[in-house]
């Protein structure tokens, strides 16, 4: 079953066409990779789907419902969350508070308006500490986010994206700047999220990661999809090799 469908998506910046007629469909529970050389429009694609930019043309459907023109916070309401290429945390807040701010209760077990904004429930505390364990940040819960190391910041940002209980997470280059060991940990985390039923949209330059985890991959160049398919067929594709290495 498809969870996200993108139909003829275009985004223009002045005269530049950053995304040009993109079509793809993501199935429930899969890990979908989007790769491409620098400036090929990967981040723009995420930003358009997550509501940062309005699409110039085309439509976006989440579970069959059109979500064009939603604001970023409304995208979170419908079940989409994301991380950023250049990490964006709340530096003056503690690690725990970073997750608290993004936290959403389960749909069928929501606390009242007042206790959401002015209270703190035990289940909430328990679940947030579980999330901290998941990210390996339990010992840093009360430290300011700005005092974390680079790898910890990446982990916290991923945990914050999970805190809003999304159906679909967009990861914008989550492995950038990570060493081999950290990439391995990240891969485990991505698999665990998938096992929880969260669909993953992965934009990544680290080929080792994206080729190993993705079910399907789309390759972007100059805003256009030049190849799609499973990791092996994409790797062998001639036009992909040309886009990355030249003719």
């Amino acid at each position: 079953m498809s969870i996200l469908k993108v139909d003829n998506l275009c985004k223009n910046f002045g005269g530049v066409r950053a995304v040009d007629g993109l079509n793809f469909e993501i199935n429930q529970g899969e890990i979908f990779g989007l790769i491409g050389p620098n400036g090929s429009g990967k981040s723009t694609t995420i930003n358009v789907i997550c509501g940062l930019y309005q699409p110039s043309e085309g439509s976006i459907f989440l579970e069959g419902k059109k979500i064009n023109g939603l604001k970023p916070n409304q995208c979170v309401d419908v079940g989409i969350s994301r991380t950023f290429q250049n990490i964006r945390l709340f530096g003056d807040l503690t690690v725990w508070q970073n997750l608290w701010v993004a936290w959403r209760d389960d749909k069928n077990n929501q606390s009242s308006w007042f206790s959401n904004w002015f209270g703190r429930s035990e289940t909430q505390e328990k679940l947030i500490s579980e999330l901290l364990n998941f990210s390996g940040l339990e010992s840093r819960a009360n430290d300011l986010a700005s005092n974390l190391s680079f790898g910890e910041q990446r982990r916290l940002e991923l945990a914050r994206a999970v805190a809003s209980k999304p159906k679909l997470i967009f990861l914008d280059e989550p492995a950038a700047g990570m060493n081999k060991e950290e990439v391995k940990e990240l891969r485990e985390r991505i698999f665990r999220l998938r096992d929880l039923g969260i669909t993953i949209f992965l934009v990544e330059h680290v080929m080792d990661l994206v080729m190993n985890v993705s079910n399907r991959i789309t390759v972007l160049n100059f805003g256009k999809a030049i190849a799609e398919g499973d990791p092996e067929s994409v790797q062998k594709d001639k036009s992909v090799q040309e886009a990355y290495f030249g003719q």
């Binding site: 604001k71 970023p72 979170v76 969350s81 945390l89 709340f90 701010v101 914050r160």
Partner: peptide, 18 residues
């Protein structure tokens, strides 16, 4: 915490559902 989150980074706050 939400007030401070908005003061820290509006874009991140919005993308966290605020």
């Amino acid at each position: 915490a939400v007030l401070r989150a908005v003061g820290n980074d509006e874009l991140a706050a919005q993308s966290s559902g605020i």
